[in-house]
Design a protein around this nucleic acid. Structure first.
Lengths: 341, 341
DNA sequence: ACGGCTCGTCGAAGCGCTTCGACGGCGAAG
DNA sequence: CTTCGCCGTCGAAGCGCTTCGACGAGCCGT
């Protein structure tokens, strides 16, 4: 294993000079630097991470805590994780993977062992048990999602409240008179996960503001559940013409179930979703949607963390703006359109 | 940050004694050990990972290289990743997350920096460009999946060849006379990923052995593609009664498409799948399937790696036995049954 | 009763790196 | 032409841990 003294000898300088050339913390003449870089390349040198961490007390590692529970949409988590890795690498950091099951001890262990310099946490609950620990830790962290009280923390997420609003507003503008939210699985609400509730709040507020009767229907993420809910909606709310879906896996099954009920989309019922663009686009009827930009959230989280590691102040909360893309699944409701034939 | 000298002072022993008590590499009297453990608990001591890695040249970290490409079923990858983390933690190791995009340099960097002691690689291609590097590395690795030439490597996977066979054999036993394999997306075959081809080989061989005409149909992982394929199968192979699906996301869409074509499952056509149990179970018609035990594969990979780290010899290839679970989607074909009415 | 064990513990060296203070040498300022 | 200061480089200390050799104390056998 080639080490810094080997590089130094090869380049005819002292180890400290190599170190400064690498870190840029002191000026090095262009000529010397080039000689060092050449030696590094020729010898195939990579600094020993442990030694570096020991001497500098910076491991150049972020810990990513992934949720692995039911009711979350896995591809979104995955996309998020990869964007975190990519963004971290762009800042010359690596990513340590932790799972929720490690719990608070896991965070504490990683922090104390100095394995990671900072934390990214997903799937934050409104009253998350890890929050006090995070606040007391000497290492910065960023939460994906918002707890009930974000004081003293740094949080980032899509503006789900606005996402709920935006969908309703879109439907209201088209002239719809009654809207329903098909939401996340019941266990997600039961867990007090912030984003599900925020969508529902935004949805309701916008509906109230627009004077539209509205209702919220949690739904399991299976096509069976989607079909059952579709039947129920048709039966109980015959005047329903606008649906907002916030439950990735059933966007399409729900539409198919509505069609199976004899409702045409968008002629009889309009559907908008809050979901990743891929899901909205690849559906047989492309769905009007507010996209969930997981990659942007991941990259944003890493940027915030890097700023904190540099000692910069960052906002406590960052809400990514929503973007609604109108596609084929929404149109004015039947009654608002001129009658044909 | 509390360090080993603090613990030593608190327990009234020398730092080396604490170290030996922790590692068990030298005998320590029960009394002393208890005193040390108590001090560790009271002071909240966790060894500094960098220092430990530097002194012992063991980082207690595994690197996990995740694929992030199209055509793979994300939930399976995720489940796999979590099982690796869990198994690693059981051996007091952590997991560093790398993405395919880092490529060979990523592996090299992590190996040279001594960040990780060993590697787990997923989504191995038949002619994977990383193989020479892996063979030359001084750090052990385990591949999930098999390249064309596994010599000098350690590989583990479900026995996909047998999985393909098992599905055909099940159908043959029921009396089916023609079978088709609905496979992975074309890009997966194009990439020469081993497991897709192995399923197809097993499928074909078993069909030939049983004297059944057979055909293989790659299929994109969208319900649109599934529907199109169902129509084509009905049109081009009217005598087809047995289908094997090896493409998680479309198991259910395909069945629905068949039903939409007027075929009853399993009365008119039997369907078996190679997919995780959850997918097979939660379908409206539970699907006879060979399960993909991602958690077992992940745990197995870690066990192999730990053995290699201990210097033990391990088999070059480990094939997990297949288990076919008969569910509601398979039955004897129409012609093989006594005619009703 | 004494050499030779093993058992339990200690001290010191050193892993590879960063970083601090020091120090020549050279340009600018007086 | 001298003096100050800065630039570029070096040497040494030390980060927290593991591990090797050493060593005293007790035990065995004879």
């Amino acid at each position: 294993m080639v080490k810094i003294t080997d590089v130094a000898a090869h380049a005819g300088v002292s180890p400290s000079t190599v170190s400064y050339a690498l870190s840029g913390k002191r000026p090095i003449s262009a000529e010397t630097r080039q000689r060092i870089e050449r030696s590094i390349r020729e010898l195939g040198y990579t600094p020993h991470a442990g030694a570096r961490s020991l001497a500098s007390s910076r491991a150049q590692v972020l810990a990513l805590v992934l949720p692995l529970r039911k009711g979350i949409h896995v591809p979104v988590v995955m996309q998020f994780a990869t964007s975190v890795v990519t963004a971290a690498r762009a800042h010359d950091h690596d990513v340590l993977l932790l799972t929720q099951s490690e719990g608070e001890e896991g965070l504490l262990r990683v922090a104390r062992s100095a394995m990671a310099d900072a934390f990214v946490l997903m799937d934050v609950e409104l009253e998350d048990r890890r929050l006090p620990l995070l606040r007391s830790l000497d290492r910065p962290s960023v939460l994906i999602g918002f707890p009930a009280d974000p004081t003293g923390l740094t949080c980032i997420d899509l503006d789900f409240h606005r996402a709920g609003e935006a969908c309703v507003e879109h439907l209201a503008e088209l002239g719809h008179r009654r809207v329903a939210l098909v939401g996340s699985p019941p266990e997600v609400y039961a867990r007090d996960t912030g984003f599900a509730r925020r969508v529902a709040d935004g949805f309701r507020e916008a509906a109230d503001r627009a004077g539209l009767p509205s209702s919220v229907w949690p739904c399991a993420d299976t096509s069976v559940a989607a079909r059952a809910l579709a039947e129920r909606l048709v039966r109980e709310q015959p005047d329903l013409t606008g649906i907002v879906v916030h439950n990735e896996p059933i966007v399409q099954p729900l539409i198919e179930a509505l069609v199976a009920q004899g409702l045409r989309v968008p002629q009889d019922v309009s559907v908008t979703a809050i979901c990743p663009d891929e899901i909205a686009e690849q559906a047989p009827i492309p769905v009007t949607s507010v996209s969930i930009p997981s990659a942007e959230v991941g990259a944003g989280a890493v940027e915030l963390l890097m700023a904190k590691l540099r000692g910069q102040a960052v906002p406590e909360s960052t809400l990514l703006p929503v973007r609604l893309t109108a596609r084929a699944s929404t149109a004015p409701p039947p009654t608002a359109r001129p009658a044909h034939g």
